[in-house]
Design a protein around this nucleic acid. Structure first.
Lengths: 346, 346
DNA sequence: ATTCGCAACGAAAACGTTTTCGTGTTAACA
DNA sequence: TGTTAACACGAAAACGTTTTCGTTGCGAAT
């Protein structure tokens, strides 16, 4: 087992100083061609690679991006990571991942672990618990220590950082408008409680679209599911609530669900009630995951372009990291959604 | 913007030496209670946290695990990551993720990036291209430099490292036996080309199970899909090949697919041919993902327990890292599969 | 003969820790 | 009074780099 070779070892071996070795390897003109070749040959032979940690310490840059997300077993988030990793790697950055598991404490702990020198900046999406408690001190603290943050998807407006979001309102309007175009008269929305910012915005889009189409919103058609507790029987609860929605609205002919799972479950319930999709009821979801593509019938969705979100977030962060001199100003980039039509609509 | 405070700054501020500050913070008995309290109060006030990079350099340990996987937008791999992250965090480790995207070059580059001091050890699953080329020098080199590796799922036998695998053969036998028990006479397998080790093993399990049940294998019933090129029309090709399988085997009544996508597609084709699932044809997949759970009909699968695989891999690696003195010996842990029965079988 | 400039290299600081090994002061003891 | 031991602290090395600032030797110019 041959340990990694260092400058010091090379210098000892060749009987020159450490500085000479370092300079020779970086092709400094200070060093004679003779010794330069000698050093480089030796380094190549022993497969010398500068130690990243030492470089990080010296440069006070780690070339590493920290990602904090609520959950990784999730199509949207993994797509975002892929996007981040793609552009990060292109710029010579690595990516370190922390999972909050939707918990405030884990979010804080993970951030503290990484903020102490391990990374140059954060890309994150806020956990539900944090959104609920509205305690954002950890974000503000890391920012005030000079570490930039880029938030995506689940963001908070009054935090001084770049943001990448989806045009949730517009996306929802596209969906609802489609349903209206396709002849739906009674359109329900299955959404989350309002503390989840994206849920709130999508609900808003739904309401605006109804308004623009001169349709009166009905409280009965708005189902706000509480997904605070991800318990074992979560799916059952969800299904029961949707069943209740169907029962109390016999004439329901359109459903807009703010995520894939809600949409799939709605289709399941519809089938249970003997409704044909899309003839009796049309369904549109949000987030373009595997489920939507491979469900039967396949699901029309508002696609979020997770990978593009990740790419943009990484670009923003890296730009900030490599242009620290520029005056501070934060932007919010909106990634366009796209309505992907499949079999669950006419 | 207040930069992170260091020992040196504290020492200057309180007019003591750096050593005194360090010792005071670590509650050394060398330091008088007086100065200890003074230092700790000051440190708390300024929210002092030791710099991870400096610690890494000093201790020659980063407390970070490098993960290299072919793809992150994949239920199985993200579950594994979740498992790794879980136990890594419990032991105070962080997790840094590199994606090979099934490419040999990216795998090598990613490993080199991380191997130069950034991490203490690797957990990885080998890319298809690497498996195809059979070039394993990068694994052997990192190992010979004293950096431990744990491989999971897609592994190579003759590399000196710990491995965590699924009992692919047994799992497949469970599936096929189930189909036989349920009365299937003509059972097909949809699998990958043999260079994907798990595909090969699952095919082997299929054949063994047939043999044990005194069923003659038929070449026509074995469909080996080439997933080397993940092209645009990959799905179409897959579908056509499966259609061909169905056409040339009219009496087909059981399908065992080595992954979720193949299984789902098989069900789709079956429906196209007017076959009812599970009455006419029963289908079993491998890997327990979202698709299986939420498809209609929901899919009976051989569950791999991705999270458990990740947990075990992390345990093995961390044990090796924290007991470097122990004599080298490598183990291969087999994670049991489990047949999860759903609607696609009787 | 003295100065100058250049080529080629080395010493040392710095990044932020921890730890080993002094060192000076004081109090107790012979 | 002189020795010793405990106490409280500081200096310095080490981890592996890069970079600034010497320093040396030597040929050329004055």
């Amino acid at each position: 087992m041959k340990r990694k070779v260092t400058l010091k070892q090379i210098s000892k071996e060749l009987d020159v100083s450490i500085s000479t070795v370092s300079k020779a390897l970086r092709n400094s003109k200070e060093i004679s061609e003779d010794t330069r070749e000698k050093v480089q040959a030796f380094a190549k032979l022993y497969n010398y690679r500068p130690n990243n940690i030492a470089l990080s310490l010296k440069n006070r840059k780690t070339k590493t991006i920290g990602i904090i997300i609520p959950e990784i077993v999730h199509h949207f988030f993994s797509k975002v990571i892929r996007g981040i990793e793609l552009v990060a790697n292109k710029h010579g950055y690595n990516v370190i991942v922390g999972l909050s598991n939707e918990s405030f404490d884990k979010e804080v702990i993970n951030m503290e672990m990484l903020a102490n020198g391990s990374i140059d900046g954060f890309i994150l999406s806020i956990s539900k618990e944090t959104l609920l408690q509205q305690d954002y001190h950890h974000f503000n603290e890391t920012i005030s220590q000079g570490m930039p943050i880029v938030m995506f998807d689940r963001v908070i407006n009054d935090i001084k950082c770049d943001k990448v979001i989806v045009d949730d309102v517009q996306g929802s309007k596209k969906a609802v408008n489609k349903l209206v175009e396709n002849g739906c008269k009674k359109i329900a929305i299955i959404t989350t409680k309002d503390y989840v910012s994206v849920g709130k915005l999508r609900t808003q889009g739904y309401l605006e679209a109804l308004d623009e189409n001169k349709i009166h919103p009905e409280a009965d058609l708005i189902l706000k599911v509480d997904d605070k507790l991800v318990s074992e029987d979560y799916l059952d609860v969800l299904e029961r609530e949707i069943e209740h929605l169907f029962k109390s609205n016999k004439k329901l002919d359109g459903v807009f669900a703010v995520n894939e799972l809600y949409a799939i479950t709605a289709m399941k319930v519809a089938r249970k009630f003997g409704k044909h999709i899309p003839n009796d009821i049309q369904v549109i979801g949000f987030t373009d995951g595997v489920l939507s593509k491979h469900a039967t019938p396949s699901l029309t969705t508002v696609s979020q372009h997770g990978q593009k979100i990740g790419e943009k977030a990484a670009e923003l962060l890296i730009h900030k990291l490599e242009h620290e001199d520029e005056e501070e100003q934060f932007q919010t980039v909106v990634i366009e959604t796209e309505l992907v039509e499949r079999e669950s609509t006419k």
